[in-house]
Write a protein that binds this DNA or RNA. Sequence first.
RNA 1: GGCCCCAUCGUCUAGAGGCCUAGGACGCCGCCCUCUCAAGGCGGAGACAGGGAUUCGAAUUCCCUUGGGGCUACCA
Length: 517
Amino acid sequence: MPIRVRFAPSPTGYLHVGGARTALFNWLFAKHHGGRFVLRLEDTDRARNRPEYAQAVYDGLRWLQINWDEGPDTGGPYAPYAQSERTALHLAAAHAMLRSGAAYECWCPPAAGADTEALEDASDADAPASVNGGGIERTALRSQTRCLCGLSPRTDKPDSAADGTQPAIRLRVPAERALVVDDAVRGRVTFPAGTVPDFILTASDGRALYNLAASVDDHEMRITHVIRGEEHLANAPKQLLIYEAMGWEPPVFAHLPILLNAQRRKLSKRDGATSLHDYEGMGYLPEAVVNFLALLGWSPGDNKELLTRDEIVRLFDLEGVVKHPAIFETAKLGWMNKEYIKALPAAALATRLADFMRRHSEHGAALPDFPYLERVAELFRERAKTLADIVRLGSYFFTRDPIEPSEEALAKYCSPPGPAGDSLRAVRSALAAAPRFDVGTVEKSIRELAEETKTKASAYIHPLRAAVSGQAVSPGIFEVCSILGRETVLARVDALVSFLDSAASEKTTAAHAKPAR
RNA sequence: GGCCCCAUCGUCUAGAGGCCUAGGACGCCGCCCUCUCAAGGCGGAGACAGGGAUUCGAAUUCCCUUGGGGCUACCA
């Protein structure tokens, strides 16, 4: 039987990193075993689904190059792939279970759901067991595993039936039997008899609920392995029961450890950057993100960290999936991204950079020509952790505006202003006189200047760095100058010289005005 | 509260009874190199949650405790 897995997100407007990892693990599993990867949208969520939300899922997946063999947009042999379009199938299954006696109609008011939060609060506050006028005993409700209808099916139709209200359909959960899930990553998980309540298959408004819909769709789509987050572990016994009631062969379940935030809580949108899109915007490379995500909760067993997509596919299997949750901490992602940037040829990096700047930078509208971009990219290849770093650290390569020297640069390399100005004047004439402006010639000019004046070259280099970049740190100054070109360099040196001159005279004036006491 | 899952350096993890005075990676610290910053080289600090049991021998098996997490909807 061919292996088929699925990624079944509910489209909420963006694809978060946890979902992306689940998708990746499914995709890797499929690729490793030569199976198929199915994308299914679980968009049955009350009114909260919008067509454009699906786009975010597609975009995120495509960015990581997690391609799906079947899906809502591409179609496939088991279409449709949007859960909202499959309700007839879900309902048919529910009625089949009703007919076979596996399920029963429940006329209980759905009020209990509305009380859930109140119950939570009550328990959190250690409040008395009785809540909000309904008189429902907390412990009674919590230990309730079946509704009254289940205990004694009523023959009399309640009044509400007359006005078109339907009953909910509940699955009858065997009370005397422990439920066992053989999980591919956790081993055998047992839910003692009586701990899984009779649960709702279809609501009184006729909608199919999650466990029903997911099971029916997984079965109909011939899914062989359900690989999903651990938060679904408690659903597994329920879904197994549905398979059993329908006489279907159940899939293998595998529950992945969840991703935690720094507070060791389930990673949620409140935890800063959790959307895949955020990482794209921060200038991470998709291949680095894939590598990083693959290693969160999975290990190839040896000590390799930097793995190509093909290597991961070759090595990946469920055996290597770890059981404990992982804290989503991005320091290592930064390192990986840097490694991937370093490994990129300059031209390739420049292409990525141009693309990134067009989408995410103010300089995107007026990009320098490609050869220039390529030289800049080469300079930052070993210095930048992200594409955004290149744009930020190298901003002076992308602007025609005057360079505003940073406080740090001024304090470190241009203080006191008088001598610094003098050094710069010397540098200026040396550079102006240089026969050419390639890296070697620029370096030679400065080094010779230092030799003639019996000074360390750094005495010229640092003020020059401040003038040209405005920063206290930059890539090699000779390279920077050469790329910028003589005209720009001299202009920036002139600008800093006059700035320094006025600073120096201000200082003198100030000294005269306020003589030291 | 109930049910379930989990537990090795700060973080991601290797480890499936002796190879472990516990390995790697990121991060951190120091030194070297050096025009600054990176990169690179060298070195360093840093963990088996606790307690029992099994065994000649336990990070590895079992039990308990503790801690953390998930679920507990007529959401998905």
